[in-house]
Amino acid sequence: MSKKHQATVQKQFTKTAEAFSKFATRDTPDVVIEKVDFLKPQPETLLLDVACGPGALVLAMAPRIRYAFGIDLTPEMLRQAREFQGEKQIANAAWVCGEGESIPYADGAFDLVSSQYAFHHIPKPELVLQEMLRVTKPDGRIFIDDTLGPESDEKFELHGRIEIIRDPSHTRSLRFTTFLRMFDELNLEILSQSFRRRRRSFNQWMLRAGLTPKDKRYQEARKLLEGSIKGDRAGFSAQVDGDDIQIVHNEGMFLLARRAEP
């Protein structure tokens, strides 16, 4: 990751750490539970969550496994994570500040390596996936969870513009077909997958990025979104709802393993 983009990510997530962490760990326990169920944790599992943010998945998994580790680029997120760890009195979790493109862990150290909502911030996600694979045991698993970009080129472009206005550290939401190609190139097979349409309030979504209706970027994003409603030109399935707009993010979860040699 370039230093410039690294700084953009750190700036964005330092600014929004508190709002973001409340959302990620407290407001959506159902989503975290869904992920833990999907991962079927085992008592001997060593987990690494890459770009762990305030540590929601690490802390939800830790009581069910041997040890859970979180790595993130933004120190403020990790301070939040450690605070939550203290509140929950979880002993078997640890945090490191580091980059997904050069993960500071030994080869094959983990049974399960996960990453959620991170790939859309990363200029070269294939490098991060490669590093995740390096630190995964030969018979280990990789878990990816992220928003999916529209398959149509026109929708993909407008979708990305709105996302980047809201959050300058956003690079692009990968399409489902892009994920499939990336998995294939690294010889990974999908063990299970799950998709969901996550409906959310535009105003809340903006607020989580630190933007209110007074902000220029809020106004710019809203104008583009409103203009996209007819024909769903940005792929957000947007619908006006009083002062607000309801939008939808398509998300995909993938559990992956190395493909067996023929």
Binding site: K3, R79, R82, W95, V96, C97, G98, S102, P104
Partner: peptide, 13 residues
């Protein structure tokens, strides 16, 4: 690599 608030900072820079 520095350790800040008990968190290792494993960034080359």
């Amino acid at each position: 690599f520095p350790i800040q608030d008990d968190i290792p900072v494993m960034l080359v820079d």
